[in-house]
């Protein structure tokens, strides 16, 4: 009860903002298309959920992010560890990383559209390419941060060179790696929504553009808030996962 009321107090500013929105929208100061009342947005959300538009497009979007992100994490982590463990990989790959790191990832949207069209493939490739480098850097920096006395301890406790790499360097890299993946997660939503807004025929971003173009602004606001909420929720779930994985740090 006490925690409930303290959580209420903590998040009450959000409630105040929502109330202010409702009052401003109903006051007639703004046109109802520019600022539909929250109650109407909620009604529009229920409609979209009932007719299946929301579920179908959400699934399409989640599949694209999930697949793109999974590939980015897999390839990115392998590259990062290869660079950390093997000097040759580091020498060859670090200039490539240096070259592509400053590229604003959104510039890849037209290229992947050019290569793979407007469908799932181009979004997955975009998210994979765009989110890979933070994971690579996380794995690389994490592996390099492994304390040499930990490695030496493992060796003097009888572990072979390879075994001590596995037992010491990989776990040492986990915190930085997870950090890199968190950046990649945030980036994946940005790239997903941007590319769906700009070049797509399916997905939540497309639905936002479609509803906006049709002038059904309550629906547009409903989907915008849904996407924002999904992004927020994904980050919170990931954070809880990280906290459990890194429980040994506290």
């Amino acid at each position: 009860m006490n925690t409930l009321s303290s959580a209420f107090l903590r998040y009450s500013p959000l409630l105040i903002l929502a109330l202010a929105w409702e009052v401003a929208a109903r006051s007639g100061l703004f046109s109802s298309s520019a600022l539909p009342p929250i109650s109407k947005i909620a009604a529009a959300w229920v409609d979209l959920a009932r007719n299946g538009d929301l579920a179908g497009n959400t699934l399409a979007s989640l599949w694209r992010t999930g697949a793109g992100l999974a590939l980015a994490i897999l390839i990115g982590a392998i590259l990062g560890f290869a660079m950390a463990f093997w000097r040759g990989a580091e020498t060859a790959l670090s200039p490539v990383v240096e070259l592509f790191y400053p590229l604003p990832k959104s510039a890849l949207i037209p290229v992947t559209a050019l290569w793979l069209g407007f469908g799932d493939g181009s979004k997955i490739l975009l998210i994979c390419m765009g989110c890979m480098l933070p994971v690579t850097m996380g794995a690389f920096n994490g592996a390099l941060s492994a304390d040499r006395t930990l490695l030496w301890s493992a060796r003097s406790l009888g572990a072979s060179r390879l075994r001590s790499m596995w037992d010491v360097v990989l776990p040492s890299a986990v915190p930085e790696l997870l950090n890199g993946i968190r950046t990649a997660l945030a980036l994946s939503f940005v790239l997903l929504v941007s590319s769906e807004l700009i070049v797509s025929r399916e997905g939540l971003g497309y639905l936002i553009g479609f509803l906006g173009a049709n002038g059904t602004y309550e629906g547009m606001f409903a989907v915008v808030l849904t996407v924002a909420f999904i992004g927020f929720l994904a980050d919170r779930i990931y954070e809880a996962f990280v906290r459990r994985t890194l429980a040994w740090r506290e």
């Binding site: 006395t149 030496w152 301890s153 493992a154 060796r155 003097s156 406790l157 009888g158």
Partner: peptide, 30 residues
């Protein structure tokens, strides 16, 4: 390095992701 020469470092060098028991078991497992 080899298990015939054990080492203790100034900053402990315990594996931070292992419990005390798991740390002590690490060498014994080998």
């Amino acid at each position: 390095p080899g298990p015939d020469r054990g080492i203790v470092f100034q900053h402990f060098a315990l594996f931070p992701w292992k419990t005390v028991l798991q740390n002590v078991l690490y060498g014994l497992e080998r």
